[in-house]
């Protein structure tokens, strides 16, 4: 339903002004090719600055690529960017256009601007607000809501006036850890009854064959929600498969995380050797090891001098984050597990 070929976009270099350093040219989308199938939830996963937003902005007709083609449901979006608005609904990373409206008016106005008449817009608004559990705060301005509620309200606006393709740029981000937990548990709690972000997407898919393109840097979200995922790094697609298929690639490995109390006990030779293979973040080391290596490593750190210096350790099967690192992803800390 959506075919992307050879898509390339470079942000021009900016010259520094009066002492302020300039920024070099950035190739934010580098020869990207994608095929999104009808009815699937397709994810773009990558760390900050990987080029996810730049890519979806080209798919939504907001930005002209330097090169390449975008075809959605048979329409050439590069030649006719204005058609994108009639094929897809887009939830951007910014909500500033809606911030001062109430939740209800934001949804209704968006529906009207999506071509619904007043009666339809209101009916769909009510249905979507109910579906997402937003009815109790329908009368409040977005600006006065928590980050999570605001994001959900913007998501509601994106759903009014149905489109065969939903493009969602980090729909669940912008929330502090507490709000994020609250939202995920609310999602879980309501999954069965009222409908939630995830359920709403599912229901839409079943009835209308809606396709979803979801941008995320959250690997847990990616693993649980997505049918297929393209891993993006520095503007390039470095892998594209189902989450399970991607994890196959590192199936023979175990993730070991070590947290030291202060400094790693480098006087222990085994620990010094482990360091070569670790990704370090302060006191935390992350290693991907073969199962028998992992066993040896655990034996080392749970005995003798090393154990005295150890604060915590975990063993886990690999996640998409490990896939990203195994594929040579450049950003070491970019992906979120939450």
């Amino acid at each position: 339903m959506c075919a992307v070929r050879g898509l390339t976009k470079t942000y021009a270099a900016v010259r520094g002004r009066r002492g302020a350093p300039g920024t070099p040219e950035v190739r934010a989308t580098d020869d990207v090719a994608l095929d999104i199938r009808r009815g699937e939830i397709f994810g773009l996963l990558g760390p900050n600055g990987a080029g996810k937003s730049t890519l979806v902005r080209q798919l939504t007709g907001l930005m002209r690529p330097d090169r390449g083609s975008v075809e959605i449901l048979g329409h050439d979006i590069v030649a006719h960017p204005e058609r994108a608005a009639r094929i897809l609904a887009y939830l951007g990373q910014e909500s500033s256009a809606l911030d001062e409206l109430t939740v209800a008016l934001a949804a209704e106005t968006t529906g009207r601007l999506r071509g619904l008449d007043l009666r339809r817009a209101r009916a769909e608004r009510d249905a979507v607000l109910d579906e997402l559990g937003l009815a109790p705060i329908a009368g409040r301005p977005l600006k006065k809501l928590s980050g999570g509620q605001r994001r959900l309200a913007c998501f509601a606006a994106a759903l009014v006036g149905e489109r065969p393709l939903l493009v969602l740029d980090e729909p669940t981000t912008g929330m502090d850890p507490v709000a994020r937990r609250a939202v995920w548990s609310a999602v879980d709690r309501r999954r069965a009854e009222h409908g939630t972000t995830v359920l709403a997407v599912d229901r839409r898919r079943a009835e209308h064959g809606t396709t979803v393109l979801l941008v995320t840097h959250n690997v847990i979200e990616a693993e649980t929600v997505l049918d297929r995922v393209a891993v993006l790094d520095q503007g390039r697609v470095i892998a594209c498969d189902t989450p399970a298929g991607l994890k196959e690639r590192v199936a023979g490995e175990v993730r070991v995380e070590l947290v030291w109390r202060e400094n790693a006990p480098m006087q222990v030779p085994e620990v010094a050797a482990l360091r070569q293979r670790a990704v370090e973040a302060g006191r935390r080391w992350t290693l991907r090891l073969a199962p028998e290596e992992a066993r040896a490593a655990v034996a080392t750190v749970t005995g003798g001098a090393a154990f005295a210096a150890l604060d915590d350790f975990t063993l886990a099967t690999p996640s998409l984050e490990d896939v990203y690192l195994a594929l040579g992803g450049a950003a070491r800390q970019g992906l979120v597990r939450a």
Binding site: G61, E82, A85, G92, E94, S96, A97, L113, R114
Partner: peptide
Amino acid sequence: GQLRFSGGLDHYATLPVPPAA
């Protein structure tokens, strides 16, 4: 000015609404 630089125009630009409106 703020709408444009904060990316808020994207919201309108991805709706099939005439610019004049």
